[in-house]
Design a protein around this nucleic acid. Sequence first.
RNA 1: GUGGACGUAGCUCAGCUGGUAGAGUCCCGGGUUGUGAUCCCGGUUGUCGUGGGUUCGAGUCCCAUCGUCCACCCCA
Length: 433
Amino acid sequence: MREDELTEQIQPVRGMNDVLPAEIAAWHIIETAAREVLTAYGYQEMRVPLVERTELFQRAIGEYTDVVEKEMYTFVDQGGESLTLRPEGTAGVMRALISNGMLRGQRHKLWCTGPMFRHERPQKGRYRQFHQVSVEAVGFPGPDIDIELIALTARLWKRLGIERVRLEINSLGTPESRRAYREKLVEYLRAHHDELDADSRRRLEGNPLRVLDSKNPDMRALIEAAPVLTDHLDGESREHFQGLCAALEALGIPFRVNPRLVRGLDYYSRTVFEWITDALGAQDAVCSGGRYDGLIGQLGGESTPGIGFAMGIERLVALLTQAGAPAAEPTADVYIVVSGERASAYGLQLAERLRDALPERRVELNLGGGNFKTQFRRADRSGAAVAVILGEDELARGVAAVKPLRHDAGQSESPLPDLAAAIQTALATAVHT
RNA sequence: GUGGACGUAGCUCAGCUGGUAGAGUCCCGGGUUGUGAUCCCGGUUGUCGUGGGUUCGAGUCCCAUCGUCCACCCCA
């Protein structure tokens, strides 16, 4: 290392962000709303490790997906094992259900939140460390559970006041019917190989279904004439999907069937859905998921149907902030201004006594000295509605002054034993004005 | 991994065809020797991202490098 590198300012890791106090209000709103809505639907929170064996993700997500091929934070630990920082939540939760013997014909409605890691180039709404709320339901063959999950998300948006999202759904069918469709599609695309752009030719080899996703306008006619997945569903999947569509209509949840909606992870089957927005630039998926009936069996557990989705907290925060930034929460209800050595020392006791008497109020004591002007400025910045003033003069007389900061009512004095009650009164009137 | 734009005070930014670094905000002090937010006055803050080159002289031009943002790819 060069010497001047030592003095260079330390930098965060690319794509890993700090959430500052000024931004935390939006996170709290989202986390609280999600927890309450999920609880209201009977979902239980669980927590799983951030790190799992690399093999788990390879098997769950699929060897030939972008996530596994080039986006995982993988390292070898001191025991020589290959471990990976989780790039998504479902695999770890499914592993936990298997490890803890929770399957045996049982049903679970679960959710989990925390950071995920993917080594991609950061851009708007996409970070290397990002946060998801991930929701899973296992043991339910559906489609009623599919509908419940979508209704739950719709309720959450309503609760958060998020309006710029719309729902797209599709069915991928069973792995068998998808394989059959895939062959037809490849056949069609090969027949038109000359008309494909470079991107699509590459996708044709890796994941042909993604050719349908091309944004190139020159490809549109070709894509529209291609065989449609929905027309090739097996009977049961078709019925499942029709049940889903009918129920969404009955619930009044608007949706669009997007036959080209193909999820990036291999484990999906039948229902897939995505809430997308036009408000966040290129990263438009706010919440997405689908059914993964084969996954648990594939991981070595007792074959159990499953469905789940993940929502990106950073993207929801961005939507919420765009709709009108939630203000930073004030830090205090009461700010105690002290002057003089004796009053400053006594202030510590007074603050503790007030915290005993008013446990639901935030009581902030001026620390680090400062003249009255400075202290009142701090009181104002703290957001406190009331200042308590304790100077040598008040202390000598056994009183403290109570001054409302948010309206023009004059300040009054209160004997120290009655101070808590006087503060409550002042705070109560502050609310009314 | 590929492409484009941008890095000047803690923060937001100005700085013309190269000629000695600016504003607002924040913070501190004063006006108000014990009363905030408003107003007035004063003050501090810079390796101009980093390294090299051209030049009498570079924040400005050139090259490299690091970083950020946006987009592609992919996805939450």
